[in-house]
Design a protein around this nucleic acid. Sequence first.
DNA 1: CGGCTCCTTGAGCCCAGTCAAAGTCCGTGG
DNA 2: CCACGGACTTTGACTGGGCTCAAGGAGCCG
Lengths: 240, 240
Amino acid sequence: MNPLIRKLSNYIDLPQADRTVLEALSRKPEHIVAHTDLMIREGAAPDRVYLVLTGWACRYKVLPHGKRQIMDYFIPGDLSDQRIFVLTRMDHSIATLTAASVVTIPAQTMIDLTDGHPRIAQALWWNTLVDEAVTREWVVNVGQRKALERVAHLICEMFVRTRAVGLSDGLSFDFPVTQTDLADTVGLTLVHTNRILQNLRAERLITWTRHKLTILDFDRLATLSMFNPQYLHLEHEGRD
Amino acid sequence: MNPLIRKLSNYIDLPQADRTVLEALSRKPEHIVAHTDLMIREGAAPDRVYLVLTGWACRYKVLPHGKRQIMDYFIPGDLSDQRIFVLTRMDHSIATLTAASVVTIPAQTMIDLTDGHPRIAQALWWNTLVDEAVTREWVVNVGQRKALERVAHLICEMFVRTRAVGLSDGLSFDFPVTQTDLADTVGLTLVHTNRILQNLRAERLITWTRHKLTILDFDRLATLSMFNPQYLHLEHEGRD
DNA sequence: CGGCTCCTTGAGCCCAGTCAAAGTCCGTGG
DNA sequence: CCACGGACTTTGACTGGGCTCAAGGAGCCG
């Protein structure tokens, strides 16, 4: 099933008409190799929105001293900002982390989508609000959690988000980033991130080989990292 | 002038009709003392939006181990999420940092506002996108900058944001938070934040007494903290 | 003038960063 | 099928930025 529909269904049940409209968006995905910037680069004028169908991507920024911070992961079903073209310049970049298939949606299509389909419009608002909540939680993560908790929290989040689009398999899911990516996500060095992963493995909390991550004890991982999934708003909150 | 209008004018010139509509919102502000949670608390159902007219407020979250992270400051002209009521539960809290006057806008008023006034709708989208960009920059700040750079960056940002609503005086502006608040904002301890402030003063980069902060050398402060104001999108980007 | 809250300072420790090198995995081409 | 090369992961030794604990000082309000 289209991962965007699957994702939005966590919020609200969409009637068939709306589903058809959303399905129609996902024709003609583009296949993009790993580690490629999408067309909207920092400084350029955004005129489109990206929808990831398969693979992972991320938002990131590189500072003048060369350090990179990843500020968001895009997994299947994730959409880059629905109204990004209101701005005239991107203030960050978006790149694939893996090979990915991505749909490009022109600005006008997004406008028509929300103008003509109020339930989709509302679901996309939910989507936007969740994106904001996730980013805020990442501020909390790098600001207040210790290294081990930080990595554990990210793993919990990505597991739940992956499961929400039907891409988990029990407590296993595809976590296709390198340790360097992970380090730049949680604000630690590569070396320290690696040692933290050793700890998580030694504590029998996770296994992670060949991009396949398995959580061995979700409750302990969630408690230890103070993971409270409420900010993901996946409890079918759509009123009506 | 109404600080919301002033803020949105950084993006686009609003015709008098739109200004009048926005002015009308700001009748009956409520006066709230410092350190008070606004009605939407974590876990509660949001049904309104807040607009700050005077004073500062913040979004924050307290983790189970008692640590607080401030994820956003609200200064005059700042609006809490324009569509927050799409969610059924708040995942964080909002509190005043100082005495403040705040306008409460019911959900339906927000909907009418954007339905009936396309330019306001677009300006509010700009506002939302800037809020997101700010939060993302805060991820970068706590993730990749060192303590001194972090504090310096926040000062640069709050100076520019304050100036954008006409509340700066040369290189001086009201920075009415305690060092404890500041520490919880930049993800450092109070003690270390204090020492960093001593450094900034010793380096003759700032003075900060009685809530009045003066930047002594903006260029040096901006360079040192790698502050690039592009993410604030204040360059009157509104097309048309 | 007493008691808040907030700011400042000192000493010692530890979590995470840095530097450097070695090991592992995997795709590719001979 | 194996050798090679590049990307990614792991390990060790050392350093240092930021945290913790603790106490004292300054400003402000009643």
